[in-house]
Design a protein around this nucleic acid. Structure first.
Length: 435
RNA sequence: GGAGGAGUGGCCGAGUGGCUUAAGGCGGCGGUCUUGAAAACCGCUGAGGGUUCACGCCCUCCGAAGGUUCGAAUCCUUCCUCCUCCGCCA
């Protein structure tokens, strides 16, 4: 959420910055300045009335004991003031609700360093790691490899849950767990605290990080009187851990990592990436979250990007880093790097991590503050990034480490996590004939 | 799921309709005293919003939201959380 005071004092500059995202979101701010002025007038008026009212109330009790008639009169006057306070208060609340409603729909303006552009075609590649693996055969996509090896199953998954789900078996299931463990070990050794959070969170938590109110259709929700939402990323519980807190300066930066399943409705993605592990309703991800002081958030952002890249470097997976353009960034982010991993079987780079600096956008929504040098509470900055998406790592690993015979070489660093396994070869699993 | 009990400042804790402007204590900060420290004593010690050039001043906040009342931490309703016991359960 944007700072109402800042928006009211200079709406044009916010509009200009938001225009870099899209014309549509910049328009949302149009009514805000007038509403803010109206809010202020009402607030001043209301405070005066409240003061008069409490002065009037103070006399009533005393008078009622000494002079009944005068007391009754004073009571009538006080009642009139009370009614007026109530009426003005309702007006003020309506204005505030409208301001809030609008501001909650406005995304974070991009940083200066973010390039112009409207979609992924305008993103800027800023680096890469490793070399593109060469094959003396035609590399296959992971879904063909996984099916041939017997370790990835889509027909049975569809029987259980419909489309966009996968059953992992044997070595693939072990690989998923091995990758998650490996990622967590790397990140905890580099200063992140491991967290295992709830996977179901409240509407408030989802609103705090910006998934709601705008992106309801992307989420899974429980039924009942108090619905809960399945987390689409561990960013939601991790960032919300410190909601409504004032942190000591010395506690920052706070760094968390967490391995969780993520649940996404993929409402707008019908027909897109329908094969394989790429776009699932449920997938696993190791997430990184930091809460930092404003003056260190850019440096911490770079460090987080490096932390995410580190696990890919250790796995020897060829990847590149792109800086997202203004039009392609997520709602809460002021600046985002995507890490894209090479998928030779598909001949494309696939996003495997997204590392964002949200600055104070989320912190303002959920009131995460810290004490500055003078001991005054100030908004902290929040950052989040995948470190990295586990399922998509399986994709890249299958495709980059595939051998001519269809087996998958296990990277050296993973072998201890795989019980020493050096190669994933065909496995037989019980399977009857469906009829 | 059932039956009880409880939510008050950083923490403990008093407060059952109006001298509450939330007592008192602990902790923290500053000061007096001291060679230094401790003790003792004195003062200060939350958040959000508004207003002012500024010192200040004002409004709101006692788990949350409604309600009753001239007036609510206090009474009523609903909800949330925690604790104890019972049931169920991994």
């Amino acid at each position: 959420m944007l700072d109402l005071k800042a928006v009211a004092s200079d709406p044009e500059s916010f509009e200009r910055r938001l225009l870099r995202r899209s014309a549509e979101v910049a328009l949302l701010l149009k009514p805000v300045k007038d509403l803010a002025g109206r809010r202020r007038e009402l607030n001043v008026l209301l405070e005066g009335l409240k003061k008069d009212q409490s002065a009037a109330n103070a006399g009533v009790g005393q008078l009622m004991r000494t002079d009944k008639a005068a007391g009754e009169q004073a009571r009538t006057e006080a009642r009139r003031l009370g009614d007026e306070v109530k009426a003005k208060d309702e007006l003020l609340q309506a204005v505030e609700a409208e301001i809030e409603r609008l501001l909650m729909l406005v995304p974070n303006p991009p940083q200066q360093s973010v390039p112009d552009g409207k979609d992924s075609a305008d993103n800027k590649e800023i680096g890469h790691s490793g070399v593109r693996p060469r094959f003396d055969f035609q590399p296959k996509p992971h879904w063909e490899l996984g099916e041939a090896l017997g370790v990835l199953e889509w027909q049975q998954a569809a029987k259980l849950s419909g489309s966009r789900f996968t059953v992992y078996k044997g070595a693939a299931a072990r690989l998923e767990r091995a990758l998650a463990s490996f990622f967590l070990d790397v990140h905890t050794s580099r200063g992140y605290t491991e967290i295992l959070p709830p996977y179901l969170v409240t509407r408030e938590a989802m609103t705090g990080t910006g998934q709601l109110p705008k992106f309801e259709e992307d989420l899974f929700r429980t039924t009942g009187e108090h619905p809960l939402y399945l987390i689409p990323t561990a960013e939601v519980p991790l960032t919300n851990l410190h909601r409504d807190e004032v942190l000591e300066r010395s506690a920052l930066p706070i760094s968390y990592c967490s391995w969780t399943p993520c649940f996404r409705a993929e409402a707008g993605a019908a027909g897109k990436d329908t094969r394989g592990l790429i776009r699932q309703h449920q997938f696993n991800k190791v997430e990184l979250v930091k809460i930092v002081k404003p003056d260190e958030s850019d440096a911490e952002h770079e460090k987080m990007l490096d932390d995410a890249c580190e696990v890919l470097r250790r796995l020897g997976l060829h990847h590149r880093v792109v800086l997202l353009c203004a039009g392609d960034m997520g709602f809460a982010s002021a600046k985002t790097y995507d890490i894209e991993v090479w998928c030779p079987g598909q001949g494309v780079f696939r996003e495997i991590s997204s590392v964002s600096n949200c600055e104070e956008f989320q912190a303002r929504r959920i009131r995460i503050r810290y004490r500055d040098e003078k001991g005054k509470p100030r908004l902290a900055h929040t950052l989040n990034g995948s470190g990295v998406a586990v399922g998509r790592t399986v994709v890249a690993l299958f495709e980059q480490y595939q051998q001519a015979d269809g087996s998958i070489l296990v990277p050296e660093v993973l072998r201890p996590y795989m019980g020493g396994m050096e190669r994933i070869t065909r496995q037989e699993f019980p399977r009857g004939v469906e009829r």
